[in-house]
């Protein structure tokens, strides 16, 4: 059976696997293009995006991620993962995978001293309900220049921090480091139901 693949080149992929397990969703770490392609959906975790780019170079992993996205399988990208998925990336400037129609501004809040646990109240209530969402921001990026097809599901001081672009959901924070499963449900509710 095809299961959700968690890109495990570097970063907090284990935390994602544990969060998925709590939801009853089967996942496995993936490190090659073949493993990525064989996944029923993908998580691109937090970590260092520059490190992940280096480890993807010449492996076909980037193309495989795009192929999984194009066939409509669910994609969940957090922090560094959101940076990889973006159309454009700044500091340093480069192109991303182009799966999220937005620009990712790296380290936009500053250094580790600016990392924080924040309670988000500016939510799209029709999607997430009315309960505030606890969000762990670690050296987080910001998302800018959102395309017309990108829905904003949560904001922090006006900045979009949780967005949906078709079958992709991107968080600039780390739902995998909190207990609230609403964000995962949003992405893998369907996959979890299919597996059941």
């Amino acid at each position: 059976m095809r299961v959700i693949g968690v890109l495990a080149l570097q970063g907090d992929f284990e935390a994602h696997g544990a969060a998925l397990a709590r939801l009853g969703v089967d996942s496995r770490p993936v490190r090659t293009a073949e493993e990525v392609r064989a996944s029923a959906g993908l998580v691109l975790p937090g970590g260092e995006s520059t490190t992940m780019w280096k480890l993807m170079e010449g492996t076909g992993i980037a193309e495989a991620i795009v192929a999984v996205a194009r066939r409509g399988d669910p994609l969940f990208v957090t922090c560094a993962g959101a940076i990889l998925a973006a159309r454009r990336i700044t500091s340093p400037d480069r192109n991303g995978l182009g799966l999220l129609d937005a620009t990712a501004v790296r380290n936009a809040y500053g250094r580790q001293l600016d990392s924080a646990v924040v309670t988000l109240t500016d939510l799209d209530r029709s999607v997430l309900g009315s309960e505030p969402l606890e969000a762990v921001f670690i050296r987080a990026p910001k998302l800018a220049d959102l395309g017309p097809g990108v829905e904003v599901l949560a904001r922090r001081n006006g900045d979009p921090v949780l967005v949906r672009d078709g079958n992709l959901v991107a968080a600039t924070f780390h739902p995998e480091l909190a207990d609230d499963v609403r964000v995962y449900d949003l992405v893998f509710g369907g996959a979890a139901a299919r597996a059941a």
């Binding site: 970063g11 907090d12 970590g47 490190t51 990392s115 646990v117 762990v136 480091l177």
Partner: peptide, 17 residues
């Protein structure tokens, strides 16, 4: 505390590296 969670959070991000 949230302060400690944020500290461990960065350590989590460095895993596998």
């Amino acid at each position: 505390s949230d302060a400690f969670r944020v500290k461990v959070g960065l350590a989590e991000m460095l895993k596998g590296g």
